[in-house]
Design a binder for these strands. Structure first.
Lengths: 205, 205
DNA sequence: GGAAGCATTGTACTTCGGTACAATAGTTAA
DNA sequence: TTAACTATTGTACCGAAGTACAATGCTTCC
């Protein structure tokens, strides 16, 4: 199954041709039938609504995976495109080998992103993890009572005892009791370390 | 360059052989030289420290991309593996075509993840990100002097003023000066919120 | 019925963190 | 050469955090 490459004027680049000799050229206005995946070159300029662009192309593509090509790629834009349902986002001037690789990935129902963006995704997500070690739900929760867990979350967000007291409708003294119990159970002595544990940056002891 | 497939007993599966007829088999204890990428089958059971496993394998692999295979893959574990430096994480029973695809991606310095995990990464990123600034160097660094940055990192890890003083070879009073300056510059009033900023969980004001 | 765990609150104390009001000295830029 | 910024340290104070030693009322389990 050949790939379809879409641009404003159906112009085809050498690198594309080299990666896919039997490609189908088309314009952004319409997707030729019987081609997968669909590649679309993003129009230049800062005033392009990528979300709409991708959404429109996907409608035309009818379920076939869509890869957006950008001559001036940006990671934020990549996120936008992928969030809008694109299966890939890469440099319009990428080498043929890279294009082939992307085609393989998205052709098999996968998603392709560059390494830089992947790093960023990982960095953003790994923070919310149950921390290294335990593969399951947050380990700290299991050791705390419900009330303590509520307080723990607030502490981890930077709330003071007084604030927590107000939000939990209890006395500041009781907050201290909860916090003290949590610290004891988790083997730490101050709320900052507790915060690190709750935020998945440190493993509970 | 052939791929190396590692398991506990150097056993090779048909799907692997089909994808890479010239693969090199080995045990988790040692990585054969001259093979890239390195595939490692995760030992079964819930008590495996994936972070350590990946770290150890990477040391043995010496720079070659590592793909962790899991017979009961989980997205949390995938994140853990990738965060620990693996280049890919996929089902140990994946079809040969998928394995080839993964090999292509990681062989070219890329990272491979399944579609489900990608969705989750995207969801997590589009929500809880410190917004557009995340792609760059941390915004908080730019506002702080070098010495303040050093102290900031230690504070974010949960060190006390006394500890920081010792590790920076200065007086506790000077630490207070640095911390005070940082809080002022970042618009907060306590070290826990500073920690949230430095750890990327909250945007500086 | 008692033991155990949890939620709640009180008083009192110590320690740590953060700030106010300083000073000295080195480096850089106008 | 000033002015501005930085790094360093001092004394002093206040408030928040954490701990010690309690008590009361509720539920659950043996």
């Amino acid at each position: 199954m050949p790939s379809a490459f879409l641009s404003f004027d159906a112009r085809v680049r050498g690198t594309w041709k080299k990666a896919f000799p039997d490609l189908i050229a088309g314009t952004l206005a319409q997707v030729p039938p019987a081609a997968t995946p669909v590649w679309a070159l993003r129009p230049a300029g800062p005033d392009v609504d990528v979300t709409n662009l991708v959404a429109g192309l996907r409608r035309q593509a009818g379920g076939r995976p869509l890869v957006l090509l950008a001559d001036e790629p940006g990671e934020d834009e990549a996120l936008t495109a992928l969030a809008a349902g694109a299966s890939g986002y890469c440099n319009g001037h990428a080498a043929p080998a890279v294009l082939e690789q992307v085609a393989l990935a998205v052709g098999n129902g996968g998603v392709w992103v560059g390494q830089g963006l992947m790093q960023r995704l990982l960095a953003a997500t790994s923070r919310g993890l149950p921390a290294p070690g335990a593969g399951k739900a947050a380990a700290w929760r299991e050791r705390l009572t419900e009330r303590e867990q509520e307080a723990a979350v607030l502490v981890a967000q930077g709330a003071s005892n007084k604030e927590i007291a107000r939000r939990m409708s209890i006395t500041e003294r009781t907050v201290k009791a909860h916090v003290g119990a949590m610290l004891e159970k988790l083997g730490v002595h101050d709320r900052l370390r507790l915060s690190l544990i709750v935020n998945g940056l440190e493993a509970p002891r």
